[in-house]
Design a protein around this nucleic acid. Sequence first.
DNA 1: ACAAATTTTTAGTTTTGTCTAAATTTAATT
DNA 2: AATTAAATTTAGACAAAACTAAAAATTTGT
Lengths: 218, 218
Amino acid sequence: MTLSEEDYIKAIYHIGKGENTTVSTNSVAEEMDTKPSSVTDMVKKLSEKGLVNYKPYKGVSLTEHGQKTALTLVRKHRLWEVFLVEKLDFSWDEVHEVAEQLEHIKSEKLTDSLDKLLGYPEVDPHGDPIPSKKGEFKKAIKKLLSEVPIGKSGVCVGVKDSSAPFLKFLDKNNIALGDAVLVMDKEEFDGSLHIRIGDRDIHISQQIASNLYLKITE
Amino acid sequence: MTLSEEDYIKAIYHIGKGENTTVSTNSVAEEMDTKPSSVTDMVKKLSEKGLVNYKPYKGVSLTEHGQKTALTLVRKHRLWEVFLVEKLDFSWDEVHEVAEQLEHIKSEKLTDSLDKLLGYPEVDPHGDPIPSKKGEFKKAIKKLLSEVPIGKSGVCVGVKDSSAPFLKFLDKNNIALGDAVLVMDKEEFDGSLHIRIGDRDIHISQQIASNLYLKITE
DNA sequence: ACAAATTTTTAGTTTTGTCTAAATTTAATT
DNA sequence: AATTAAATTTAGACAAAACTAAAAATTTGT
Ligand SMILES: [Mn+2]
Ligand SMILES: [Mn+2]
Ligand SMILES: [Mn+2]
Ligand SMILES: [Mn+2]
């Protein structure tokens, strides 16, 4: 498997949100930042290799084999992200780019030893679940903060928008993964929220709330 | 810098044994397991990029810039080797292949954090010195065991032949990096040695002795 | 149902890195 | 010094992965 092939497999997996749906040529092109014609070419090749199902004009989906490949890549990507944060003191917004390279290193022993070193983590620094060696993982039970009802509380486990600017905003406002959050009140007018985070009461906009994931605790 | 370009730079560096000598097209081809014509093409490109000095029919050498690039690659390669052995329990003979991939990961922060995590090691698992961030390193003061005079002792710091079969032989015979070795006697007839390693007295052939490096201690 | 808009594919190029076969230069021998 | 051998480069071809422009299929709107 070449690096490029792997990135395509991963893109198809991600667009389908983990469930094995059929995705369009254009959506893959957009995700990968390439042209649709390039996608067509690659998808034909992947089809011949038995990694995807492809019918011209009808979209692509992963085969059993492709699915397994995607899970391995996601596993590697997220394990490396944990490594970078836990062992090398990287911050949220720095890990993705490097993990994008590290996920392509070919060594099953490396992946599994890393998993062990990190204590078999179940989620990555963005709150996304890490597939086990067998490809199993708990479907994330995370909810957007904007959809959490008043009175409920949870733990901050991830972001929807993982762009550097947003992550930097969170850093600046002292909102971090693992923080306990209680939804105290919601403004009907603009959807902004009053929340208690740690021991601080703060007020955040709807836009922020709809990009932060909580794992509901009660 | 592409992965392939980096591997060429490294090959030129290694053939020149770290000193900046001019090396032949053929030697690069052999080291890289490619054809001489491919080397010519690549060397032209590297020359245009200012990484090597190249005169047709006269061989290649690294420029200042190329030298620096080579040192960075060697640094990354060897740091990853230490990481694999120290943190992930890889053995001598397993690290090279994986490090060959990891050395190409682009992130200065990653390299330097790794260096810190490992406690700024000075040698890799094969006894080869690791360049510092600034590109400085102590020239190895290692000597082939076969050339150590009778009565002298040292610490096993590396191998000349780093092929898997040889490394496996050492494992099997309980000879490891860091072991203290005393040369007790030498057979004139076949050059074989009687050595004390740890608390064991053993007899090794000239062939083995000429592939093991010691750092002389007294 | 038909025309217009959109999506997707095909055809033809480009760049990178490799190869083979042939030509050229340099080195070694007589 | 001439010939032979070895090393190196050139020329031409190919596979991978991308692109642009044009053609074909599908979807949408009326
Ligand atoms: Mn990637
Ligand atoms: Mn992530
Ligand atoms: Mn390499
Ligand atoms: Mn090494």
